[in-house]
Design a binder for these strands. Structure first.
Lengths: 339, 339
DNA sequence: TAGGATTCTTGGCACGTGCTAAGCAATGCC
DNA sequence: GGCATTGCTTAGCACGTGCCAAGAATCCTA
């Protein structure tokens, strides 16, 4: 910065004022400084700025880069945070970078709030973080009284799907999912609840698999091996839904004529024309907005109680769901070549 | 840190020495300091450390979080960098965060080297970066004389695929791809070259689409609308390959019995059991290693010339490729329901 | 022209850390 | 007992910036 000042023939402080466009510097100094900045390619040292400032105006996010929904969330958070003049420090989780490592790193950057996907609640660094800053659990209910939580409303989401399917005449509605973190069981509970509310408690049929495509394929194979296929299968994620369709399709089972299939997330995958998947929309941007709101609320008012926010679920109806095949055909058996 | 020193009844400097485990402090001081650190949950201020240090030992990566390959690359880079005691600053690109914004941010953090996926070469900040630090183009050839480049060897990759298919008796080998950045055209060129080398110049058949699944679906529909299907289709990405399979499959065209399909990347998608896609492996970890090596080489020896590194391609053979259908059947026409 | 108001500029300290050099106590040696 | 040596501790400066308060220059008014 001194170099810039020398070139512009002003003092370092004037340069600082111009760069922050604070009142003071004359128009002449301003243009001189900006010209010098441009010529030297000057860029202020972020570390020095952060060190000097009273507040860092940074928030941290702990997430797993390979999980699509989390990456999308991060993108949305970045854009929303910049509108609030907040910076975002990314804390990518990998096999070697555990909750503990990532949270320590974020605390080292003096973030003022923290959002965590799938955190390890036993991490000591996370415990300290919770005791000092607003921490928001992302994508799942909180078990901790001291943290906020922002996640989509699975109960409402599964109610929407089940109602949609029931409206199409379905009764044998299976669910592929239930494993994985806290969300897995929660969402499966929501399925059972929705089925019970619809008076279909005796049709509950859960295939315990995880969220990945491989899990959906496994569930599909289990179903194909049975004597009798359900008329609809709800996947716990878009990946699972897409895999269900692909495996069914290869086995000669038509979607939605023979079986209706749904996903969960309404990500890019669901919208793909060759999947065309009816799915509950989990709005990454809305979740990012709520997470940021929760952080800001507790930063502005440190005494406010942590809350659990369930963002509304909506249903995007596409071509993978249709009227249930008539009960008179006595159950469909897979035919054709099995992939 | 002063708080820690007070609690441990030593000076701030002793605390600093213990935390860096530098020689000096006695065993008694060490344990006292560590106990105090633990009790207070102290975490050194990264900004202050970076400001004080001569070198930051940071490298920056500009990438797009929603692109799977780039996220995987980042994960690998994180792990490799930590082994070299280097930090990684992530520079996520989003619609609002352009090359210019991201590179400025990274320069502000005083990174010592920079890796960029799909950069906008006209960005002024990027020009300054190139003039000051080792910059590595990621995933594509460099056009600039002043930057390194690390990308997988597309020429070798397409030669492997074409040879594999020719070995299975294929001649009518189409290519779905060619659009998108610099890689798109490059990879299509590699296809044409491989076909020519195999003596199949007159069979070259390129469908100009991009890298996304939607693009693959579009290409598949174009092919299905023709009188005559090729016996093999090479997708420019796993996404494209998977989409080709899905659309073919729905149209009653069997893979690989009727048409062989390949992908490019060998990502998780290719390995999915219901895709089971033969694909060229683009090794994210190897690319990360080479990128890091390039940065470190130029940091250690600032005068060394930038290089273009093509990482070796290998072929992962799975179930989506098989012997070409006999020429005697006079070309296959799609049958069954089209999805 | 003097005095005050206004506009612009700058001296100097602080942020939290790393590191050099100096200080201090204990021990060994002659 | 004096002096060097060793082991441990600490005083104090520097990193690059923001900001307060004080200084300098200019303009306006009497």
């Amino acid at each position: 910065m001194s170099d810039v000042a020398r070139l512009a023939a002003v003092s370092r402080q004037t340069v600082s004022l111009v760069l922050r466009d604070a009142p003071g510097p004359s128009a002449a100094s301003r243009t001189a400084v900006l010209a010098a900045v441009d010529e030297l390619g000057f860029q202020a040292n972020t570390s020095a700025q952060l060190l000097r400032q009273e507040r860092t105006r940074l928030v941290g996010v702990m997430f797993e880069p390979r999980i699509t929904f989390e990456s999308r969330f991060v993108e949305c958070l970045l854009e929303r945070a910049s509108r609030e003049r907040l910076g975002v420090v990314l804390g990518p989780v990998t096999p070697e970078r555990t909750t503990e490592v990532v949270v320590r790193e974020l605390l080292g950057h003096r973030v003022e709030a923290l959002g965590c996907f799938n955190p390890d609640p036993s991490s000591p660094a996370l415990r300290t973080a919770i005791s000092r800053l607003p921490v928001v659990w992302l994508g799942e209910r909180s078990v901790d009284e001291l943290v906020d939580a922002v996640h989509s409303d699975d109960v409402a989401g599964l109610r929407l799907i089940v109602e949609h399917l029931v409206g199409l005449g379905h009764r044998d509605i299976a669910y592929a999912g239930g494993l994985g973190g806290r969300v897995g069981p929660d969402r499966a509970d929501a399925y059972r609840r929705a089925m019970t509310e619809a008076g279909l408690a005796d049709c509950i049929d859960q295939l315990p698999v995880g969220f990945r495509e491989e899990d959906g394929a496994a569930a599909a194979r289990v179903l194909l091996a049975r004597d009798h296929l359900p008329t609809a299968v709800i996947g716990c994620s878009d990946h699972v839904g897409a895999a269900l369709i692909s495996v069914f399709s290869r086995a000669g089972v038509r979607v939605p004529e023979d079986v209706s299939v749904t996903g969960y997330d309404d990500s890019d995958i669901a919208a793909l024309s060759y999947h065309d998947l009816t799915a509950v929309r989990q709005d990454a941007d809305l979740n990012a907005a709520e997470a940021l709101a929760a952080m800001m609320r507790r930063l502005d008012n440190p005494d406010s109680e942590p809350r659990d926010t369930a963002t509304p679920a909506t249903l995007t109806i596409r071509g993978s769901t249709g009227t249930a095949r008539g009960s008179e055909d006595g159950g469909l058996r897979p035919s054709g070549h099995v992939g």
